[in-house]
């Protein structure tokens, strides 16, 4: 019984991290209607930047994070401007293939630059246990992940729903043509959305990198998690990612606690496939009108 409670509790906290991984992908999909296959690799790249900056340049991890956010925004804007914007009008497949190519390039560039070995960003909080009671325990890192994720998702939701910038983004997402007629520079909205995505992704990268070991090739695994979160929560729904993340996190850990650790990923995948089959538009997503 205690192991089930532990699994659910840790699953919820892990779900917060998953939501933060997925929220950028959801933004991109909601606004540009494209799936960014390079999403996971961009996150791992940001984790490497933060790791390198803390190791070599700064003492403070926050300072390193801010600098790597700036670097990632520049990279994101360049990717958007030169790669995605040039194929975005040609439908979803070319964009899919371009980001797929980008994913391969990033993965191999990271292997060349940082080597194939595992890395971990060590922080003061990774070892701390918030409480330990009998068989139950809660890690400080997991709690931090969850809190940060919720804060970021709330900020993004307010930004999208309550500000005039958010209105422009939503208009672009609803109808590009009409938004342009209303004087909104839609390609600029895409770039702003990409910058927001990169900020969230960079923070997710730091948290992932300080919670789990990561490799240059880890991006693929996190891409599937991001995709799962977004699919369960509904493509383009920002609050939905939190629900999607928690469902995925809890299922994975319940699967691991019931069937054994090797089944953790498998349970997550199977639940994802079932949800994809039954509700292709996601739990909170609106069904597309025909």
């Amino acid at each position: 019984m205690a192991s089930i409670v532990q699994a659910i509790m840790t699953g919820i906290l892990l779900g917060g991290l998953y939501a933060l991984i997925g929220v950028g992908m959801s933004l991109i999909f909601g606004i540009m209607k494209i799936t960014n296959i390079a999403h996971g690799d961009l996150m791992i790249l940001s984790a490497f930047f933060t790791l390198m900056l803390t190791a070599n340049l700064f003492k403070s991890i926050i300072l390193a994070l801010i600098v790597s956010i700036i670097i990632m925004i520049v990279i994101g804007v360049l990717v958007q401007k030169f790669l995605i914007n040039s194929v975005i009008d040609k439908g979803s497949e070319p964009a899919l293939l371009v980001t797929f190519g980008l994913s391969i390039v990033l993965q191999n560039a990271m292997i060349l630059k940082f080597g194939p070995n595992s890395q971990l960003i060590s922080t003061a909080i990774s070892e701390v246990n918030i409480f330990r009671h009998g068989q139950l325990s809660m890690s400080g890192q997991y709690l931090l992940n969850f809190v940060v994720a919720v804060v970021i998702i709330v900020i993004l939701t307010i930004l999208i729903n309550r500000t005039s910038l958010g209105r422009g983004i939503r208009a672009t997402s609803n109808d590009v043509m009409a938004a342009e007629l209303m004087g909104i520079n839609t390609k600029r909205m895409y770039i702003i959305a990409m910058a927001l995505t990169m900020t969230a992704t960079c923070i997710a990268g730091l948290l992932v990198g300080s919670t789990f070991v990561f490799y240059p090739s880890s991006g693929t695994q996190y891409l599937i998690i991001a995709f799962g979160v977004v699919v369960i929560g509904g493509m383009g729904s920002i609050p939905g990612t939190l629900i999607g993340g928690i469902i995925l996190g809890v299922t994975q850990l319940l699967g691991a606690s019931i069937f054994g650790t090797p089944y953790q990923m498998l349970t997550g995948y199977v639940v994802l496939l079932i949800l994809l089959t039954l509700r292709p538009q996601g739990l909170l997503g609106k069904a597309k009108r025909k």
Partner: peptide, 24 residues
């Protein structure tokens, strides 16, 4: 199940199926 998914969902759905086989 896979043919119920359209477009991008199909693309990633097939990928998840392959990942399932890898884990299995």
């Amino acid at each position: 199940p896979i043919f119920k998914m359209k477009g991008v969902y199909f693309t990633v759905g097939t990928w998840i199926v392959a990942e399932c086989l890898l884990v299995l």
